[in-house]
Design a protein around this nucleic acid. Structure first.
Length: 457
RNA sequence: GCGGUCGUAGCUCAGUUGGUUAGAGCACUGGUUUGUGGUGCCGGGGGUCGUGGGUUCGAGCCCCAUCGUCCGCCCCA
C-alpha cells in the first residue's frame, strides 16, 4: 500500500470522544422533547434515487447534490463522444443515486411508500446527516446533521403552534436564553404579489424579500427593479415590508392592505389562529416575530413558514420549517398535507460552544482503573474487575506489561476518578489500594468496601 | 460560480532588507532509588518550509501556476 496522506474531504469533520459527548447532549435533548410531543423516530437511507431528489430544491439544489457514480463499467453504455458531451447529459447517464440533501423529501417518499402501514396523522422525527456540495464556511458544512420533526395528514394549525412550542422547549433545554422564532405565511406573500398585479412573480419577490436584513430596503429595491417590478410596485411594497409594531398591529395593517386578496387574507387568518393557539402555551425564552421578509428558499412551502435565529451569537438560522400542502403529490399521493420543522444540530453545536454552554462532565465514563504490577496480579484482578462490572460500575483493567507510572498517566488522561492498585501486598492481605485520582489520597480496602464507595459517588 | 486571506514539527506559531547545519511553547518519548498520575529537574526523536515550475552565486522569504484552509457573496441548517 502506498503511503496516503491522512485527510478527510472538504467540509467534513471527525468528532472526538469529547465532541461526541456534547453532540449527544444535543441529540438526546431534542429527542426527549420530540417524544414528549408524540413523535416517533424513523431513518431513511443515506442515498436516494436521483429521481426522488432532483427538481425538489430548484436548480441550485440540483447542483449542490452529491451524486453517486454507478458501479460497473458504466462507460460502456454510453454511445456519445466523451469530448463533446455535456457534463449534465453525461451525469444523467452514469449516475442514478444521490446522497440525501435534506430529510423532508425522503420523508415524503417514505410516507408514500409506506402509506398502507402508517395511520394518520403520522408524526415522526428523524436525526440523520445530509450532504450538500456547498462551499464550506462558518456554520456551513458539506456533511451536517438535521433534526426534523414533521406531521403529515393533519391540516390543523394546532400543529404549527405545537412546533413553535417544540422550538421553545428544545432550545431552552439546550441552554439558549434569547432566540427569535420568525413566522410568516406563504399565502401572505402570494397576496402581496397579487395586489401588485404580478402573481407570477412570487418567486423573484420572495427571493428578494429574503435578503432584506442583509442588503437593506435599498438593495431589495434594486433587485426588484431588475426583476421587472415597477417603481409604483416598490411604493406599494414599502409600507408592507417596513411594517412595525406588535405582531397584532402588523396583522391589522396587513388586513387593510390585502383586503382585495382572498389568499392573502387567508394567510393572515392562519397566523392569527396559530397565535391564538399559542396563547394557551407558556413559552420559556422564545420571542415570536411576524416577519414579512421571511421567505425561505425551498419551493414546496405553501402555508406558515418558520425560521429560528439566536440573538446570543452571530450565526445563520439554526432551524426552519413550514407547511407544505402537496409534497407527497410529487410521488403520486395527492391531498396529503404536511408541516414540519428542522433543527440544524451543527450550528446549534457551534453556538453552544461559543457561548460556553456545554457542561464539562459529559465524557468521563470509566469510574475506576485497575492497575496491576505483575502477571499474577493481573490474573488475580480479573475477578475484581468482573465483580465491579456486575455491580454496574464502569471499570477497566490496564493489561500487564506497562509500568505503573504509565498506567496512572492513562487514568489521569482519561479523567478516571479512581484507581485500584494490585501488587503482591494486596494479593496477600486481600486489601486493595484504592486511590482517589483527584485528591491523591489512598486507602487499603476490601472489594466490598470499594464497591460501596464507588456506588455512592 | 465570484471575491479576499492564509499554508513552516502532531498542535499553536516565530523566522529580521533573500545569506551557512530552520527555531520556541505544548504534545510525544527516556531518565530522575525500578509500587504511583496530574506540579519539578535533565536528556531525546521528529520538518522534502502545501505542491510544481521560475528568478538568483544562494529562496521558508521574490515571481507564476496548482492544491488546500479560513472568511465573505450567491444559496442555505
Amino acid at each position: 500500500m502506498a503511503n496516503v496522506k491522512a485527510t478527510i474531504p472538504k467540509g467534513t469533520r471527525d468528532f472526538n470522544p469529547q465532541q461526541m459527548g456534547q453532540r449527544n447532549f444535543i441529540f438526546d435533548t431534542l429527542k426527549k422533547v420530540f417524544k414528549k410531543y408524540g413523535y416517533q423516530e424513523i431513518q431513511t437511507p443515506a442515498m436516494e434515487s436521483l429521481d426522488t431528489l432532483t427538481g425538489k430544491y430548484g436548480d441550485e439544489g440540483d447542483q449542490l447534490m452529491f451524486k453517486v457514480l454507478n458501479n460497473g463499467d458504466y462507460l460502456s453504455k454510453i454511445d456519445a463522444n466523451l469530448t463533446t458531451i455535456k457534463s449534465q447529459t453525461l451525469t444523467s447517464k452514469i449516475t442514478e443515486k444521490a446522497l440525501r440533501y435534506d430529510l423532508t423529501v425522503p420523508f415524503a417518499r417514505y410516507v408514500v411508500m409506506h402509506q398502507t402501514e402508517i395511520s394518520l396523522p403520522f408524526k415522526r422525527y428523524q436525526i440523520q446527516p445530509v450532504w450538500r456540495a456547498d462551499r464550506p464556511q462558518r456554520g456551513r458544512y458539506r456533511e451536517f446533521y438535521q433534526c426534523d420533526v414533521d406531521v403529515v395528514g393533519s391540516n390543523s394549525l394546532l400543529n404549527e403552534a405545537e412546533f413553535i412550542a417544540i422550538y421553545d422547549e428544545a432550545l431552552s433545554n439546550l441552554g439558549l436564553r434569547n432566540f427569535t422564532i420568525k413566522i410568516n405565511n406563504r399565502k401572505i406573500l402570494t397576496g402581496i404579489a397579487e395586489i401588485l398585479g404580478k402573481p407570477e412573480a412570487i418567486v423573484s419577490l420572495t427571493v428578494a424579500l429574503d435578503k432584506l436584513d442583509k442588503i437593506g430596503f435599498e438593495g431589495v429595491q434594486t433587485e426588484l427593479l431588475s426583476k421587472g417590478f415597477t417603481p409604483a410596485n416598490i411604493q406599494q411594497l414599502k409600507p408592507l415590508i417596513l411594517l412595525t409594531g406588535t405582531n397584532t398591529e402588523k396583522l391589522e395593517s396587513l388586513k387593510l392592505i390585502l383586503a382585495t386578496s382572498p389568499t392573502g387574507l387567508q394567510g393572515i387568518n392562519e397566523i392569527y389562529t396559530v397565535l391564538n393557539y399559542l396563547a394557551s402555551f407558556t413559552l420559556q425564552h422564545a420571542t415570536i416575530e411576524l416577519d414579512l421578509s421571511l421567505a425561505r428558499g425551498l419551493h414546496y412551502y405553501t402555508g406558515c413558514i418558520f425560521e429560528v435565529k439566536t440573538n446570543q451569537a452571530t450565526m445563520g438560522s439554526i432551524g426552519g420549517g413550514g407547511r407544505y400542502d402537496n409534497l407527497t403529490g410529487m410521488f403520486g399521493l395527492q391531498g396529503l398535507t404536511g408541516v414540519g420543522i428542522s433543527f440544524g444540530a451543527d450550528r446549534i453545536y457551534d453556538v453552544l460552544e461559543e457561548l460556553n454552554l456545554f457542561t464539562t462532565n459529559s465524557q468521563q465514563i470509566t469510574q475506576v482503573l485497575i492497575c496491576v504490577l505483575g502477571k499474577d496480579e493481573e490474573t488475580y484482578s480479573l475477578s475484581v474487575l468482573n465483580q465491579l462490572r456486575r455491580k454496574n460500575i464502569a471499570a477497566e483493567l490496564y493489561p500487564f506489561g506497562t509500568k505503573i507510572k504509565k498506567q496512572m498517566q492513562y487514568a489521569n488522561d482519561k479523567h478516571i476518578a479512581y484507581a485500584i492498585i494490585v501488587g503482591s501486598q494486596e494479593m496477600k492481605t486481600g486489601k486493595l489500594t484504592f486511590k482517589n485520582m483527584l485528591t491523591g489520597q489512598q486507602q487499603s480496602l476490601e472489594i466490598a468496601e470499594i464497591e460501596k464507595q464507588l456506588k455512592t459517588t
